[in-house]
Write a protein that binds this DNA or RNA. Structure first.
Lengths: 153, 153
DNA sequence: TGACTCATGTCAGCAGTCTGACATACCTTT
DNA sequence: AAAGGTATGTCAGACTGCTGACATGAGTCA
């Protein structure tokens, strides 16, 4: 099938390119996490808990960009594996603050290093200024997509 | 649960921000495509076929960032719905060149307008120069992720 | 205080995508 | 010409994440 084709050229669409970049990152992450027996969401959950101990299921879900139902399933699995712990009863409201166990921290340590490597690969050809610029641009895109109520008043 | 929280601040990680942006775009696209009875991959497939008539199943899969198995399932559905057509036999090799039907083109037209609106929303606060810069940056990231063989010789 | 609203946790069912596997067709290389 | 390698199409099973729904707890407002 026209094997030498250099690739599809919808390449003027930033939406398409964003999807392409995210897909490439996703694949790269999967590739390094699979040997560790972890999925991306699994890793994301642990990383979130390391940086923000005590996050609830719903907060973890938002942070990992999945529904709270999906995160709930994952958390139950992580709990069974002894990677995280949750109190049997909510100290306040219904939210159950989750914490990493020592075992969870150990597993995260290995995964985190691998993920950092992937991210560094991705940014290998970008200097500090370009990385800053990229943060600005992505932030602007996210903001525009999440607060469109700012259009008609 | 600390409801007023401005959001998690792993915000120095470009990998995380890229995922966040892609997720926001994904949600926005889903929101406008669902009322049309289409998924994002469904739309992507039609859009690819409009711009590159005759693409094979495998090529469509690569263009839509899914496996060829997934695209195969989708194509069979689209064929049943009369949105695309494929020859019963491959003119060359095993690849079946797919084409949009008039009905497929009609459906795409509506969806495409909605998607374009979403993309314009996303880029609302970026001028032409910034959009160009973003293309460059994303392209660099994709390249670095997909051709890491350039590390050790 | 009581009604309303919102956020949360959780269960059940469903949809989309993936992995694994196999057969076929073309292009090398020997 | 034969053999190996690669790309493709397709079937089957499994998994992940999502939607829908319900109950509980906290804050808000009349």
């Amino acid at each position: 099938m026209s094997q030498g084709e250099p690739g599809i050229e919808l390449d003027t669409s930033l939406g398409y390119m964003l999807k392409a970049a995210a897909s490439a990152l996703h694949s790269a992450l999967e590739a390094v996490l699979r040997p560790l027996g972890m999925t991306i969401t699994h890793y994301s959950c642990l990383e979130l808990l390391a940086q923000r101990p005590g996050l609830s299921n719903s907060e973890l879900a938002r942070g990992a960009f999945v529904t709270r139902q999906s995160m709930n399933v994952l958390l139950q699995a992580l709990e069974r594996q002894g990677l995280v712990v949750r109190p049997a009863q909510a100290p306040v409201g219904r939210a159950l603050p989750t914490e990493l166990t020592a075992r969870g921290r150990r597993q995260l340590k290995v995964a985190s290093a691998a993920v950092r490597r992937v991210e560094q690969d991705m940014l290998a050809n970008l200097n500090a200024g370009e990385q800053d610029q990229m943060r600005r641009l992505l932030t602007a895109c996210i903001a525009s997509l999440t607060e469109p109520p700012a259009s008609a008043t």
